[in-house]
């Protein structure tokens, strides 16, 4: 399945946000659910092998956009002869714009082979909160192969560059350097930095990046403990109303 979805937020000139573009193709379906909230509602199982999905997000000066999702994304095996499934997310945030990306977790079902590529460019004076959670396998199941490849740039410099590989083809991923016995990991990036540095309890740390930003990371046996650590740092209050 191939999908190209796009959302562009701009200021409405009266302190609010107008969606100049809201275009979606299944399974990356976008629905406006609040004054500056868009939900990914999902239009089918997956991603599955062979899927090629791309979401483009832009936030103009003075606009605020929050992107949530109604359910976890479940990466599934699909047909073995097809290439790995691929989700690319490209976002730009202009000076004076605010983007909050806070979807439900991605779950790597056994046998999946998935790549998520994230490229975010925030202009100086823009504001970003970017949350990503990954669960390695459904309950009691081995993890499939998932690689995430993330680049976040702020004011023209690369602030955060990170790849994470889990699953049977990732050497040492379940060793004590990478995830150990943890089967859920969450990351939250704020640029510029918005929360205080801390470490623990458990496998949780909030770290000041070398540039203007913070990373909060939590690793735990299940997603609930990850959410308990990260949600208080900025879980959106908007609820799905229609």
């Amino acid at each position: 399945m191939r999908a190209r979805s796009r959302v562009a937020a701009e200021s409405d000139g009266r302190g609010g946000t107008r969606l100049a573009v809201l275009r979606s193709e299944s399974p990356l379906l976008l629905r406006r659910t609040g004054p500056h909230t868009v939900h990914l509602v999902g239009g089918g199982a997956g991603p599955l092998r062979g899927d090629d999905l791309r979401l483009d997000i832009s936030v103009a000066p003075g606009a605020a956009l929050e992107i949530l999702s109604v359910a976890a994304q479940l990466a599934l095996p699909g047909q073995a002869h097809l290439p790995q499934s691929r989700l690319e997310i490209h976002a730009t945030v202009a000076s004076g714009g605010t983007l909050r990306w806070w979807p439900e977790p991605m779950i790597a079902a056994a046998g999946c082979n998935h790549l998520t590529v994230t490229r975010v460019d925030v202009a100086e004076g823009g504001s970003l909160l970017w949350r990503d959670d990954l669960v390695c396998g459904r309950h009691g199941e081995d993890s499939g192969d998932v690689r995430t490849d993330t680049t976040i740039r702020y004011a023209g410099s690369t602030l955060y560059r990170h790849e994470l590989s889990v699953g049977p083809h990732a050497p040492g991923w379940s060793g004590a350097a990478v995830l150990g016995d943890g089967r859920a990991i969450g990351t939250l990036i704020s640029a510029p930095g918005a929360f205080p540095a801390t470490a623990g309890p458990g496998d949780f740390a909030v770290m000041p990046l070398a540039g203007p930003g913070m990373l909060a990371t939590a690793v735990a046996p299940d997603i609930r403990a990850v959410q308990a650590a990260l949600d208080p740092l900025g879980k959106p209050t908007a609820t799905l109303t229609h």
Partner: peptide
């Protein structure tokens, strides 16, 4: 280019280093 060089991360090394430093 620098951005294209590998960036494989190890979350427990990061978190462990922060805990260790305390």
């Amino acid at each position: 280019p620098v951005d294209d060089l590998p960036a494989a991360g190890a979350p427990l090394l990061d978190i462990g280093a922060e805990l260790h430093a305390t």
